[in-house]
Amino acid sequence: MSLDIDTVRKVARLARIGMNDEELTLYQEKLNTIMGFVEQLGEVDTDHVAPLPSPVDITLRLRDDEVSDGNYASDVLANAPEQAESFYVVPKVVE
């Protein structure tokens, strides 16, 4: 199967990457090459196989539910493009 231009536009939107029509066409071609390549996975019978999300058998650990870190707002904000009074500043989201 191949991705039509509307699907590519939708994916770009979901990924929050701005693209003009020319770029969408370019990406459509490359994405279809890659999706064509992965299509061969359909040959493999996986009916009774469980998905493997992580390669190594590591059980996630639990730690005590207590504060172990924090209280350095200036470090957290040090790389913010815009900040004010210990807050990130974003464009207006509520009219």
Binding site: R16, N79, P81, V90, P91, V93
Partner: peptide
Amino acid sequence: DGVRYGLRVEGEDLTDTYE
């Protein structure tokens, strides 16, 4: 996302800024 760290290019609204 242009908010917490890294590059930000200003847009018309938040979604436009992300994109």
